[in-house]
């Protein structure tokens, strides 16, 4: 059992793409932050896509409600991905980071090693906290709740018209 796992891991670890990716993660903190942002978003997108798929395959949900439930999940997933990526990229932007770090660490010399290290750490933390905590967990519920309400009302009205 372990041998095939070992072989696949060895192949994965030594593939040119992974080697190049790991090298870039080590040399470029900004790239590492963006990678973590993408991994976080892709987990969400995959989970939402799976929910949509499961809803469409679920025979216990009535046909008229199926597409509504799937649409709601797809909309929430889409909003989550867009808001998170936009907030993350905006925060990871060099100009934004540079302006924030200059203010936050104004006591340090901008060309010093300490300033660069502190800026790299702040860049990663602020981007991830901003995108995965503030944008995804505060902005998304605030945006998606009215949209969900609107879609629900539309669904109810359509059903009434059909009757």
């Amino acid at each position: 059992m372990i041998k095939p796992v070992e072989k696949s891991l060895n192949k994965f670890a030594n593939s040119p793409f992974v080697k190049k990716h790991i090298d870039k993660c080590i040399k470029n903190p900004e790239f590492l932050t963006k990678t973590l942002l993408v991994t976080s978003v892709s987990k969400d997108v995959f989970a939402y896509a799976l929910r949509v798929h499961n809803t469409m395959k679920n025979n216990e949900i009535p046909e008229d409600k199926k597409s509504f439930v799937a649409k709601m999940d797809a909309t929430t997933g889409f909003i989550t991905a867009i808001v998170q990526i936009s907030a993350g990229l905006a925060l990871a932007n060099k100009k934004v980071q540079s302006a924030m770090c200059k203010k936050l660490f104004s006591v340090l010399d901008e060309n010093s090693k300490q300033f660069k290290q502190a800026s790299a750490g702040f860049g990663a933390v602020s981007t991830l906290v901003g995108a995965t905590v503030l944008a995804k967990r505060i902005l998304v519920p605030l945006i998606s709740a009215p949209i969900a309400g609107y879609l629900e009302n539309k669904h109810i009205n359509n059903n009434k018209k059909a009757i």
Partner: peptide
Amino acid sequence: AADKFAKI
């Protein structure tokens, strides 16, 4: 703050 962030 700089010290903490530099240690990350």
